[in-house]
Amino acid sequence: MVTRRRTTVTLPDDLLAHARATAPGGNLSAYIEHALRAQQLRDAAQAVRTWREKTQDDAEELADIFGEDVA
């Protein structure tokens, strides 16, 4: 079960109005959670790209050593 915690967030009036107007079923918490999870994925994308670039270099080095495609 996911633990949830109440928090306070201050938003510009126009942004809050938009979120309230478009939140499915009027559930502002679900709308904000969805937006934050999407941002979390965007934030992680750069770390994943960096990791893939580094492991690609490792794979090329292993291929040179073992003479086969390990990627």
Rank of each mutant, 00 (worst) to 15 (best):
Q56T: 10
H34F: 12
S29P: 09
E68D: 07
D13C: 00
E60Q: 12
L41A: 12
V9Y: 00
A30M: 11
E33G: 03
L62S: 02
A47E: 13
E60C: 08
R4N: 03
R4P: 02
R20Y: 03
T50M: 14
A21N: 10
A21S: 14
W51V: 11
H18Q: 14
V70Q: 05
T55Q: 02
E33S: 12
D69C: 05
D57S: 06
D43I: 08
Q46F: 15
R37D: 09
P24F: 08
D43S: 09
R20A: 04
D64W: 12
D14I: 05
D69W: 10
R49I: 09
G25E: 08
D58C: 09
D13A: 13
Q46H: 15
W51D: 06
E33I: 05
P12R: 12
I65E: 13
A19F: 13
W51G: 08
Y31C: 13
H18M: 09
H18D: 07
M1Y: 06
D43W: 06
Q40S: 07
A19C: 08
A19I: 14
D58W: 10
T22D: 11
G25T: 09
E53Q: 12
D64F: 08
T7D: 03
T10C: 06
T55D: 13
E61D: 10
Q40E: 06
R5I: 00
T10Q: 04
R4H: 01
L36N: 01
G25D: 10
S29M: 07
A47R: 15
L11P: 00
I32F: 14
Y31H: 15
R6N: 01
A17R: 07
A71I: 04
R42V: 13
R52P: 02
A45G: 11
A38L: 13
H34Q: 12
R4S: 04
E68T: 03
T7R: 05
T22L: 14
D43V: 09
L62Y: 05
I65Y: 10
E68M: 14
A44T: 03
G26T: 02
A47K: 14
Q56E: 13
L36Q: 00
T8N: 07
E68C: 15
H34W: 12
M1G: 12
P12C: 01
L41H: 07
L11V: 01
R6I: 03
Q56H: 12
P24R: 11
M1W: 05
R42K: 14
S29T: 13
P24D: 06
R42S: 11
D14T: 01
L16A: 09
P12T: 02
T55V: 10
G67W: 08
